Amino acid sequence: MRSLGVKEARLDELTFLGDLSACSHGGFVDEDRQFFECMNQNWGIKPRIEHYGCMADLFSRAGLLDEAFSLVQNMPMKPNDAVWQDVAAVRQKMIKLGVRKPPGRSWVQINGVLLDYVGGDSAHKHASLIYKMLGEITMQAMREGYNPDLSELFLGMKE
């Protein structure tokens, strides 16, 4: 609106819904995130379930399934079927196509040497050092109040 020179325009719930939907279909993840955050902060408009549905759709379309799932789980209202439907549909499509989320990749510096590894890679030549250091870092963080979310630790692992 402002880019069109309409400075006095008052954005409302429908304006935000239209923008979120357009960004979702256009793949503008960062823009939509900012727009969603400014709804309440800048305009005093509390997102409704439809706004959360657009965000879940955006994240799902962009392959950010963990973010979509987290958003839905942490909404201030109970998710309805439409919200979950977007996330579930994209997950099913990814399964049919054989698309998998790449494993996490991290770096750790040990004795001045930067090492990289892929999550779950126990074959790495420095795996024992890396996991030892990560364990120490995790323990220090927990002593300082960090509470790790382990709820998705075993998702995707075969029995």
Rank of each mutant, 00 (worst) to 15 (best):
D86P: 00
G120Y: 04
E152V: 11
V72S: 03
Q73H: 11
L11A: 11
T138I: 09
I95Q: 14
V118H: 05
N42F: 06
V83H: 08
A89Q: 05
L20E: 02
H51F: 06
A89K: 10
S21L: 01
M1F: 12
G120W: 13
E136C: 03
H126P: 05
Y52V: 00
K96P: 03
A9N: 06
K7V: 11
P76D: 03
E67F: 09
E152P: 01
M39K: 14
S70K: 11
V118S: 03
D149T: 00
A123N: 13
S106V: 08
R2L: 07
L17G: 10
G26P: 01
S21T: 11
L64H: 11
A89G: 00
G112W: 06
E8P: 01
R2C: 01
M1D: 13
G44I: 12
L17Q: 10
G120M: 15
G44Q: 09
A141F: 11
L71H: 06
C23T: 01
K125I: 12
G119A: 13
I95S: 11
G5V: 06
C54R: 00
W84G: 01
G135Y: 12
V90R: 14
N40R: 14
G53W: 06
S24E: 04
V29A: 04
Q140D: 15
A141K: 15
L129M: 14
M139W: 15
Q34H: 05
T15Q: 03
V118K: 07
G53N: 05
D30S: 02
P103L: 07
M157T: 09
F69E: 09
K96M: 04
L14T: 11
S21V: 04
G120R: 03
W84R: 12
L11H: 06
F69G: 01
L4A: 05
M94E: 09
V90E: 12
F36Y: 05
A88R: 15
L97P: 02
